[in-house]
Amino acid sequence: MNLYAVMAIFRFEMARFFRTVWQSIVSPVVSTSLYFVVFGTAIGSRIQEVEGTSYGAFIVPGLVMLTVLTQSVQNAAFGIYFPKFIGTIYEHLSAPISFVEIVIGFVGAAATKSLIIGLIILATSFFFVDIRIQHPLPMIAFLVLTCISFALLGFIIGIVSKSFEQLQLVPLLVITPLVFLGGSFYSISMLPPVWQTISLFNPVLYLVSGFRWSFYGLSDVPIAASLAAITLFTILCLGVIWWIFRTGYRLKT
């Protein structure tokens, strides 16, 4: 493994993040604050609590997940799409590195960025509501795993995309709906039984549920199912990426 190469890619990607640091941080913080105002205050005045937790606090894990998922996908997709788009990818392809270094560098940087943003949002939410974190270590583990697995997904999207439109389409059409329908702002026990069953096919539900459990000990699905789901998802993404590099799909002619 070429560690210097991993570091070079990682540093390069992080430099892009810090060049536009205000833009990178301000927009998620502002939108999250808006969610607090709209959901926490407006809806929270009607739904006072969910299974013993105030509604405002209940939605915090879901909000963090919403941002972290979208950011991971967007960062990683853009990170690999950009050098492809401007033609500097030749350097990665001609360097003495394999897909392992490329993936660790790009995905690692994308995951780190979204982790930073996730933590900032979590910190922001302390200003709005009273939050306890019952299981801090699993909380961090869930967060990190989510950042990594969705950055892997974003990486795939960035490689497959042929245009900027496609690059934005998947996060918009797939990720956001899955997060909204994945119990970010409610417990699925509030839904009619049919929708509860349908929700069980939504992978994001398992993430949000596991993440919320690490805060309040509440979960829609067993914690083991959450862990299994995220592990499976990570392996799936790694498999697709391995295949992409094996065949040079959309990278080499």
Binding site: Y4, R11, F12, A15, I86, G87, T88, H92, A95
Partner: peptide, 20 residues
């Protein structure tokens, strides 16, 4: 084709790292 917003020094330094 070059990374537009990177500086000359950093982009050259990056290449060195990429090659291990």
């Amino acid at each position: 084709n070059v990374e537009p917003f990177e500086t000359v020094f950093n982009t050259v330094s990056f290449s060195r790292g990429l090659f291990g």
